[in-house]
């Protein structure tokens, strides 16, 4: 069957067997390997992508269910101008170690910040309950999401504005 999605702003189609999950379609048919296969049964969140504004486990959604919808994957976050604040902060704080859970965690956090620009630590924790990380212990991730949220709320977001002089200045941390 032919499935057509808007992925990271581009219209993409693929002919896939009906049992294909959104995760397999993204990874194997569209070669977007950012979303990971951690468990394939909805337990770990490594496969998280955003479908019509909501974070979903791509391993639990059939490609056919996503037909006609808008999908954002980790590959769609950074722009030519720079990194998404979450990506920038996660890099600077060392929030990821092996990184396997990273794309999922970042996408879940993005979906959260899109709806809740000023989340409390508890709200961040609740949002990330479906994302397992075996390496880090989550502390830096939760701090990172808060930092990114603050960055996104400030009018001159250094991560987004490629030309900002603040970019070259080292962070005071």
């Amino acid at each position: 069957m032919i499935v057509t999605l808007t992925v990271n702003g581009e219209l993409r189609s693929a002919s896939v067997p009906p049992e294909t999950t959104l995760l397999v379609m993204l990874r194997e048919h569209l070669h977007l390997t950012g979303a990971k296969t951690g468990c394939d049964v909805g337990d770990c969140g490594a496969c998280t992508v955003i479908v019509d504004g909501l974070a979903v486990n791509a391993c639990l959604m059939l490609a056919a269910q996503a037909d006609g919808r808008t999908v954002t994957t980790i590959e769609g976050l950074a722009t030519r101008e720079g990194l998404h604040p979450l990506q920038k902060v996660f890099e600077e704080t060392g929030a990821l170690q092996c990184g396997f859970c990273g794309p999922g965690v970042i996408m879940t956090s993005k979906a959260l910040l899109d709806h809740t620009p000023e989340p409390t630590p508890q709200e961040i924790r609740t949002a990330l309950t479906g994302n397992l990380c075996r390496c880090t212990g989550y502390v830096k991730m939760i701090e990172g999401v808060q930092e990114a949220a603050a960055m996104m709320r400030s009018p001159q977001s250094p991560a987004l504005a490629g030309q900002s002089p603040a970019l070259a200045a080292p962070e005071q941390k």
Partner: peptide, 12 residues
């Protein structure tokens, strides 16, 4: 501490 590979991790 930053990891040298962390940007790639975050970019997927």
């Amino acid at each position: 501490a930053q990891r040298p590979d962390s940007r790639n991790h975050g970019l997927g």
